[in-house]
């Protein structure tokens, strides 16, 4: 019987042995959770049911199980690998005996607990949420009655009148500046915006700036500024284009 064909029914896995190996190698199944002894038992049982002994199959199974055991040992004791390999055979035997004895004590402890659980199975008691935590005492901050009176008085005072002056502002029409800048550009091929804005109010300056943006949107002008906050130069676009065209021709 070939080892990979062995069907397994373990606590953590059910299926063929080769699938188990694949899952372990892909780290989709924690080898630490797999009882390797159960696998060996399953194999021996299958072997006993057969009349002929397949030595080659047995050898293959032994190699696979030995590899599994080694992987499992590395998995369970990753930090102890070096220490154990440095032990002499006698020391290793001592260490193994010590661990087995430790495990035996633990088994005795577990057996005692199991017995105790059985004995205590007729003890019923209330199980509920943890008791409520004590409520913290809420203390008022120290204060003087005069301060409280002052705070109430401040609330009773009439709030100051809100200024609505900004609602009366008249925004100058942008068309005025559009006409003005178009007229300027008909006379000159470019102008500096700062010079045009001189003597205007803030609102008029804003309207003038919007007018320049409007001209730019209509592809009538080009706007240039060497650096942030540097003077803005506004130039007629048809003049700029024709000069570019001339430059290209002469080149």
């Amino acid at each position: 019987m070939r080892a990979p064909d062995l069907d397994l029914d373990l606590d953590t896995f059910e299926g063929p042995f080769d699938l188990l190996l694949t899952l372990v190698l892909r780290e989709e199944l924690a080898l630490g959770e797999v009882d390797v002894a159960e696998i060996v038992l399953a194999y021996v049982e299958r072997l006993a049911a057969r009349e002929r002994l397949d030595l080659e199959g047995c050898g293959e199974f032994l190699v696979l199980v030995a590899s599994l055991l080694e992987l499992k040992a590395r998995d369970l004791f990753p930090d102890e690998e070096v220490d154990l390999s440095e032990l002499s055979p006698e020391e290793a035997a001592d260490e193994l005996a010590r661990r087995l004895e430790e495990y035996r004590r633990l088994k005795h402890g577990a057996a005692w607990l199991a017995e105790r659980l059985e004995h205590e199975s007729d003890r019923y008691f209330r199980l509920g949420p943890a008791p409520l935590a004590p409520r913290p005492e809420r203390r008022l901050a120290p204060g003087r009655p005069e301060d409280l009176a002052a705070a109430v008085r401040a609330l009773a005072e009439e709030p100051p009148q809100l200024s609505l002056a900004h609602m009366g502002l008249r925004f100058p029409p942008i068309e005025r500046f559009l006409d003005r800048f178009r007229a300027t550009l008909r006379r000159r091929k470019a102008f500096m915006l700062d010079a045009e804005l001189e003597g205007l109010s803030r609102l008029e300056q804003a309207a003038a700036f919007l007018a320049v943006l409007e001209l730019r949107k209509g592809n009538e002008v080009r706007i240039e500024q060497a650096a942030p906050f540097a003077p803005i130069r506004v130039s007629r676009l048809d003049i700029e284009r024709s000069s570019e065209w001339r430059t290209a021709r002469s080149a």
């Binding site: 088994k107 402890g109 577990a110 057996a111 607990l113």
Partner: peptide, 14 residues
């Protein structure tokens, strides 16, 4: 409670 759980409880308790 499985034998494995009881063994684990024994380890933690002792």
């Amino acid at each position: 409670l499985s034998p494995a759980a009881l063994e684990t409880l024994a380890v933690a308790a002792y």
